[in-house]
Amino acid sequence: MKIAFVGKGGSGKTTLAALVARHLVAAGRPLLAVDADINQHLAVALGAPAEQATGLPPLGEGLPRIKEYLRGGNPRIASAAAMVKTTPPGAGSRLLRVAEENPVWAAHVREVGGVRLAVTGAFTEQDLGVACYHSKVGAVELILNHLVDLPGEYVVVDMTAGADSFASGLFTRFDRTFLVCEPTLRSVGVYRQYAAYARDYDVTLSVIGNKVEDDSDLAFLREHVGADLLACLSRSSYVRRAERGTVGPLAELEPANRAVLDRLVDEVDATVQDWAAFTRHAHEFHRRNAAAWANERAGEDLTTQIDPDFLMGPAAIRPTVPAADRSVAPTPA
């Protein structure tokens, strides 16, 4: 299952993404975590010291090699340079698995706090004033387009704050989206905006209340969120310690808050993966991007990259490409 954590900046989405990732790994579940937020804090939330967090190899820096690997032998894609963030897989494309050895993971995935983590990378001095963060997140979108997660496998993505993910089709790449919401009008406002945008794309959305102190906070969330409210986390001394740099064992998390993690995982496991919708949305957003900017940039009609007979999902998995054919060299940490 592909799981997104979204919400207002400061709502606690990164903290909750880290808790759920650690909870799943502790249960022995195959998992990949991805930090796709402009504020790259997931590694620290998982317990990484600052020097490790800043030394992780960004996905964005390896994008040309990632494209070349994913292109594989797809005859509809003339070159890796012709691939854009929305390019969908087709016959001959290389697909990714959550738990496997491949050159993309070898170059960009590192273990942090027991969790396999990939990061988009933060803004650099060269990016300031000239680059959009969505150009970095494009690597995540391309990877998710080509990633087949089987039952019992999980991908946890800490997304950009607010409704920024709607600047691309990335919001349709998830089986379950958890919106973390504080009992405040600003946080509820982000929920309303997100829910309104997501409604037309059948996004499976649940709200997790956070920093709930008393019955009035709970009543406020129920009034403004309604049936989308799945569970609530109370104020947590464990989380406060973690935010100050002491990430203790999950056994130290308050029992009521640990029960919320179980509830979230149960909700994810009960979600039905709709690979037909996944494929349909991938094609739709590729057509949109081709018409809006990508055709002009590439100098060709990129909608011809769409393979109408290809359905993304477990049935599309092909035998692993021999190591000698793999073309992504590790990126220096």
Results as ranks from 00 to 15, higher is better:
K2E: 04
S11C: 11
G12H: 12
H23R: 09
H23I: 01
G28L: 03
R29T: 09
P30V: 06
A33M: 06
A33F: 04
D35L: 09
D37W: 08
D37A: 13
I38W: 00
I38A: 14
V44K: 11
L46V: 03
G47T: 04
A48Q: 05
Q52C: 03
G55N: 14
P57C: 01
P58A: 13
L59S: 03
G60F: 03
G60W: 05
G60H: 11
G62F: 00
P64C: 10
P64E: 08
R65D: 14
R65L: 11
I66C: 05
K67N: 05
G72S: 06
A82K: 14
A82G: 15
P89H: 05
P89L: 07
G90R: 12
G90H: 03
G92Q: 02
R94V: 06
L95H: 08
E100I: 07
P103N: 04
V104K: 07
W105D: 06
H108S: 10
V109H: 13
G113H: 04
G114K: 05
A118S: 10
V119A: 10
T120Q: 12
F123I: 13
T124C: 01
Q126F: 02
Q126D: 14
D127T: 11
V130E: 13
C132D: 09
S135H: 13
V137W: 07
G138Q: 03
A139K: 00
D149V: 10
E153D: 11
E153M: 08
Y154L: 05
V156T: 10
D158P: 12
M159H: 07
A161K: 05
A167N: 15
S168T: 15
G169W: 06
G169P: 09
L170M: 09
F178E: 01
F178R: 04
V180T: 14
V180W: 10
V180S: 06
C181W: 04
V188I: 12
V190K: 10
Q193V: 13
Y194E: 02
A195Y: 02
Y197F: 11
D200W: 06
D202K: 15
T204P: 14
L205Y: 00
L205D: 02
L205H: 02
I208L: 14
N210E: 05
N210Y: 02
V212G: 09
D214M: 12
S216A: 06
L218G: 07
A219G: 11
F220W: 11
A227E: 11
D228F: 00
C232I: 02
L233M: 15
S234F: 06
R235C: 15
Y238Q: 14
R240E: 12
A242Y: 01
R244V: 03
G245P: 02
T246C: 09
T246I: 12
L253G: 13
L253K: 09
P255I: 10
P255W: 08
A256D: 06
A256H: 02
N257P: 14
D266G: 14
V268F: 01
A270M: 11
D274K: 05
A276K: 10
A277L: 13
T279E: 12
H283I: 00
E284T: 11
F285D: 08
R287Y: 00
N295G: 13
E296H: 12
R297S: 12
L302S: 03
T303K: 12
T304I: 00
Q305R: 00
A315V: 10
A316Y: 01
R318M: 05
T320P: 09
V321R: 14
P322G: 01
S327Q: 10
P332T: 04
